[in-house]
């Protein structure tokens, strides 16, 4: 009998695709962050690298609405010179009963080189990756992973503190349903950060402590001396499902306001993957407080990280 799990995922992390961060080693993560950092500088200097992906076709295949992530990938692809096409579920034939694998066959026929996939089901990009010729980049699948989000979060943190190891990062909110939380936990623990999750037990998945994090059910303990406070979005349907009694009760105990933030280190960063529910998980003044909030910088780093990922995957593609 095989015990444990990581080797499955290590194998899944084949070099051809970016499906998740679980099982990744710092030696695989650091080069992505370094390249992204150089793209961030380049972006600020308004110089573009339009030859890196010239002649390659990038398809953004979004089965779930997302303006932010899709736009970020689109911009990243265009800055590197790729031909970028957006396919969203409302316009695709998936609504007509076409299966995911029919879609894969179609994409193969179109000679797609890079395929960015967002899907509401965990494992959908992995399933597609088995059937398409393109390099698949997971842009968020169900409750599984959102690797580029965690990479951009890590880059943002590293730019402020210069390193990731030894930092204390508090991830607060709906961890149970969050792919962002899972990818961040995998990346940050691999890089030597101390990760805390702060949430009511109904918003934490089973056996979360076995992912190498510390569990807190109170903001006071969870935020104490934290370098980074990462807030997660709370969907309205969690209330209707009975996981949380009401939005006001949630904000009272698990929302981030200035008073709670004061428990963290004076130079603590406030992060949010967006879109925010102001007044539910985060108080507006905190979200807009330029001394702490790096939410806009996260978006900027998102483009740089995605440029780095597209660049690296296209290089590997050329090697094979």
């Amino acid at each position: 009998m095989r015990d444990g799990t990581p080797h499955f995922f290590a194998r899944m992390q084949s070099q051809r695709h970016l499906l998740g961060l679980q099982g990744m080693h710092p030696s695989q993560i650091v080069p992505i962050l370094d390249l992204a950092e150089s793209y961030a500088l380049l972006n600020r200097s308004r110089k573009t690298q339009r030859d890196v992906l010239r002649g390659l076709t990038l398809i953004n295949l979004f089965f779930e609405d997302s303006t932010r992530t899709r736009t970020s990938f689109e911009l990243a692809g265009k800055r590197l010179g790729a031909d970028v096409i957006n396919m969203s579920v409302s316009t695709s034939s998936v609504n007509k009963g076409e299966t995911l694998l029919d879609t894969a066959a179609t994409l193969n026929a179109m000679r797609t080189d890079l395929l960015v996939v967002r899907h509401a089901q965990s494992g959908a990009p992995a399933l597609l990756s088995q059937k398409v010729d393109a390099a698949v980049i997971n842009a968020g699948d169900g409750m599984h992973e959102h690797p580029t989000q965690a990479l951009l979060d890590a880059l943002t943190i590293r730019r402020h503190f210069g390193h990731l190891d030894g930092l204390t990062v508090a991830i607060c909110g709906d961890v149970a349903h969050s792919r962002v939380a899972r990818s961040n936990i995998h990346l940050l623990t691999a890089m030597g950060a101390e990760v805390r999750v702060v949430a009511p037990p109904t918003l934490l998945p089973g056996a979360i402590n076995q992912l190498g994090v510390q569990v807190f059910h109170h903001m006071a303990g969870g935020l104490a001396d934290a370098h980074v406070v990462m807030m997660l979005r709370l969907q309205r349907e969690r209330m209707s499902a009975g996981l949380v009694p009401s939005a006001r009760e949630y904000f009272r105990f698990f929302g981030l306001d200035a008073e709670r933030l004061a428990l963290a280190r004076p130079d603590a960063l406030v992060m949010h993957p967006g879109p925010m529910n102001r007044g539910v998980e985060i108080d507006s003044p905190v979200a807009d407080d330029a001394r702490h909030s790096v939410i806009a910088e996260q978006v900027e780093m998102g483009v740089a990280v995605r440029m780095a990922v597209l660049d690296l995957l296209s290089r590997r593609r050329n090697e094979t």
Partner: peptide, 15 residues
């Protein structure tokens, strides 16, 4: 089955 593996895979669990 609810637990570490289901959590890692992001799958809804059955306790």
């Amino acid at each position: 089955t609810e637990g570490e593996l289901a959590t890692r895979m992001g799958l809804p669990g059955i306790p």
